[in-house]
Write a protein that binds this DNA or RNA. Structure first.
Lengths: 270, 270
DNA sequence: GGGTATTTGTCCGTATGTATT
DNA sequence: AAATACATACGGACAAATACC
């Protein structure tokens, strides 16, 4: 049993999928019972193989319906965060418009929390201090794209930025608004990029398998004011299987609209 | 069966792990047989729960030995790529030294390939053109940290950058060397960040479970010269469960050595 | 709306293989 | 060599989701 049977089945199915033998995007795979006969394996073994394919993003399963070849849409490309002080919001719109897809940002849901955990620590606030949370969902062409929550210390509201606690979009951008209304200007930002398994909300919103096979890419952006103090923390999460981030620095030629290719470095680790 | 039993078991184990009830890093979990008795479930169900914990990076299994609480070391923090033209190599050393860990970069393994796939496309070379590949492995404190392959068009070697095809490190940095030896200067770079399942090499080098439960973060950096043409492509891969990337722009205060916290935004998607 | 067939999801019990100590 | 513990594989049963009539 050098290489397990479920792995052999998975490899064979993968080859067939990539060769297009099973039909293109959205095509149905044979049912588990058919695969069972096809490979002379038990259903559980076949299911292990299919799970592996799901992890690779090659297929997806719909309970009670079947298993299907994943349609690999052009990944969403989010561009240029980090090369300056642009806001994620505006970049979001620009990036999406370039790809000729229709972005939709939900009305923010407002929440007041006690400082704790990550946002509290990033904002350098004592536990128990009030924090304003603005939750937003973003869709592209009806598909869920990202979840975003921004945390502000309540002191900003006290200082005049009262629209932060109103459930309305701030069209000019929250950072620009805060500068105008509270006199706090963002002079620097730090992005923290991590990858982790999805939590329950993300599973629901993005429609992911809830066993964590699809990873979430999380960007935590902390904005700093003139005095070097953090005054807002934005947590944005993206399903990693259909997103790509591009960062440019210096002089980079404009790119023709070529879709990115899958990567393979081949060669063995010595 | 609103919430499956394997999931309840997984949640319970997770709670115990995070509370430290099972002991700290590296502590052994009860064996599958013990868990079976503990929860009154079958071994397969217990195993489903454990798989889920492995996906989350909370535990790892060692065949024939046991299941253990993952030691969550401070994640490696790679800092500042993108905010300028620094090279990944030098940043790598700096980032690691800050954390007082010893970085080790392997002697590069050289390979000559025909242009194709991702590197060929990024370098805008016709299929079949010769490409130099320099593979390197990087370790921190003996732990595998990243795999890196850089692709150069053979024309750079012809133009004088002959050390590219020697299996030796280029201490001053390959980009600086190429400028000196071939007169090609990097004036811009583009980073493409994607997340995907590990391939066979990465599974071996990083010691990952080979069913793709742990994701790989991949950064493809393309360097452009004065004429706006790409002249090198660097593909670096990191296991996503123990890495974090930080990007700063504008004025950001120096950070005290606080380790990053796990994130949780709570609240339900509306 | 209800009922039925199909298909995937969960769970069980058992047996055997393989890695580690 | 033996014991322990995880990995693989089988077969069966029922539940839940979906589609179709």
């Amino acid at each position: 049993m050098a290489v397990p049977m479920w792995r052999q089945i998975a490899d064979d199915l993968r080859a067939k999928i990539e060769a297009g033998d099973l039909g293109g995007d959205g095509a149905a795979l044979p049912t588990e019972l058919e695969l069972q006969d096809l490979y002379g394996a038990s259903r559980n073994t076949v299911r292990d193989a299919v799970k592996w394919l799901v992890t690779r993003g090659l297929v997806y399963t719909r309970s009670g319906h079947g298993t299907f070849v994943s349609h690999k849409p052009d990944p969403f490309v989010t561009k240029g965060f980090g090369s300056g002080l642009e806001e994620l919001n505006s970049e979001f719109e620009v990036a999406v418009r370039d790809q000729r897809r229709a972005p939709v940002v939900s009305i923010p849901r407002i929440e007041i929390q006690q400082a704790q955990g990550l946002p509290g620590a990033e904002l350098e606030l004592a536990d128990g201090t009030s924090i304003v949370c603005r939750h937003q969902q973003r869709n592209i062409d009806g598909d869920p794209y990202s979840l975003q929550t921004t945390f502000y210390p309540m002191s900003l509201v006290d200082a005049g930025a009262t629209r932060l606690i109103q459930a309305k979009n701030i069209d000019e951008g929250a950072v620009a608004y805060i500068e105008k209304a509270a006199g706090v200007r963002q002079v620097g930002a730090r992005d923290r990029i991590t990858v982790r398994a999805p939590d329950a909300n993300e599973v629901i919103f993005f429609g992911l398998p809830d066993d964590g096979r699809v990873a979430i890419l999380q960007i935590v952006r902390t904005g700093f004011d003139q005095t070097g103090r953090p005054f807002r923390v934005t947590v944005t999460t993206y399903p990693a299987d259909r997103n790509q981030f591009v960062l440019e620095s210096g002089n980079v030629p404009v790119q023709e609209t070529g879709q990115p290719e899958p990567a393979s470095t081949t060669s063995v680790a010595g």
